[in-house]
C-alpha cells in the first residue's frame, strides 16, 4: 500500500499582514505550523501502513520554511518527504496548487491511496483534495471518519450535516479526512531530532515537474483577489450597562423582559 499524504504549512496565528498590491498573504516571518487537520491524514496513513505495509510519502507545496512541516511528518514516521518549491508557485490559488500537487504525485508514480486533510485552517476551502482527485482522474471520498481497506478496495464512513454515509470504491483513490478520525501521535524528542539530522527532504522545482509554467502563481490562477481590505462592522452606538455584576444582571433581565425575550 503506497500512500501519498498532502500536507500544508499554515501560519500559526491569524494576526498577519497581506500585500495590498497582490492581495496575497505575507507568509515570510510568520511562524508556520503543520496544518492540524493534516496530522490526522498523516496518522491515518501510519495506521494503514501498520496493517498493510508500504511506503508513505509526505508532499507539500510551499515556501522553503514549509520544510519544517515535512520534518514534522518525518518525525511522525513517514518514509519520504517532498517539498514543491519554486518562485513561480507563489500566489497560486487552489486550482494551481492542485495542479502542481497532481503533477508531483504522477511523478512519484506508484501509489494506491492519497490522503489529504479535509481543509486547511488558513484557507479552509476544502478544495485541494477534490481538485487533485479530478486532475488525477481518481475517485474521491471526502470527510472520512473511518477508513477500512480490504483487497483492492477502500470503504469510508463519510460525515455529513445530518448523518453519515458508507462509501466504497476501488483503489487507487483519494480520501480527505475529518479531525475525528483519530488522535495524532505526538512525536518524541528523539524522533524529531532524527527527522532533522538523518532524514532528507527532497526539493522539487517547476522543472522537476515538467509543468506548464503559465498554470502557476498569480497569473496562472483563475481566481484573483481584486481587493483586500479591513472591514470593521459598525452598527449604531452600543449602550454599556454599568454597575456591580448583580446590578448589571438585574438591568439586563429587565431589558430582555421589556422586549419580550424572557
Amino acid at each position: 500500500m503506497n500512500i501519498v499524504v498532502c500536507i500544508k504549512q499554515v501560519p500559526e496565528t491569524s494576526d498577519i499582514g497581506w500585500d495590498s498590491k497582490t492581495g496575497s498573504l505575507i507568509r515570510e516571518g510568520v511562524e508556520g505550523i503543520l496544518n492540524p487537520n493534516d496530522k490526522n491524514a498523516l496518522e491515518a496513513a501510519l495506521q494503514i501502513r501498520q496493517q498493510h505495509g508500504g511506503v508513505i510519502t509526505a508532499l507539500s507545496m510551499g515556501p522553503r520554511q514549509a520544510e519544517d512541516a515535512l520534518r514534522e511528518a518525518l518525525s511522525m514516521g513517514v518514509d519520504k518527504a517532498i517539498l514543491l518549491n519554486d518562485r513561480i508557485f507563489a500566489g497560486s490559488d487552489t486550482l494551481s496548487t492542485s495542479y502542481a500537487l497532481s503533477l508531483a504525485i504522477k511523478k512519484i508514480s506508484r501509489f494506491d491511496l492519497i490522503l489529504c486533510g479535509k481543509e486547511s485552517w488558513d484557507a479552509m476551502t476544502a478544495h485541494v483534495g477534490p481538485q487533485v482527485s479530478e486532475l488525477l482522474n481518481l475517485p474521491q471520498l471526502t470527510y472520512a471518519t473511518e477508513i477500512t481497506i480490504h483487497n483492492n478496495s477502500v470503504t469510508i464512513k463519510q460525515k455529513l450535516e445530518d448523518g453519515f454515509k458508507i462509501l466504497t470504491s476501488s483503489l487507487p483513490a483519494l480520501i480527505t479526512v475529518e479531525k475525528e478520525i483519530n488522535q495524532p501521535q505526538i512525536p518524541s524528542m528523539e524522533s524529531i531530532m532524527n527527522a532533522y539530522r538523518n532524514k532528507e527532504v527532497q526539493v522539487w522545482t517547476n522543472e522537476d515537474l515538467g509543468a506548464d509554467k503559465t498554470h502557476f502563481g498569480l497569473k496562472g490562477s483563475p481566481t484573483q483577489s481584486r481587493k483586500v481590505y479591513i472591514k470593521k462592522v459598525h452598527k449604531g452606538k452600543v449602550i454599556i450597562l454599568e454597575g456591580k455584576p448583580d446590578e448589571i444582571a438585574r438591568n439586563l433581565v429587565q431589558i430582555l423582559k421589556q422586549k419580550g425575550l424572557v
Partner: peptide, 16 residues
C-alpha cells in the same frame, strides 16, 4: 472574510 483579523477580500475570476 479572509485569513487574518477583519480582512475581507473581493475575489474575481476574470478569464475562466
Amino acid at each position: 472574510p479572509f485569513f487574518g483579523r477583519d480582512l475581507m477580500a473581493d475575489i474575481i475570476c476574470p478569464f475562466h
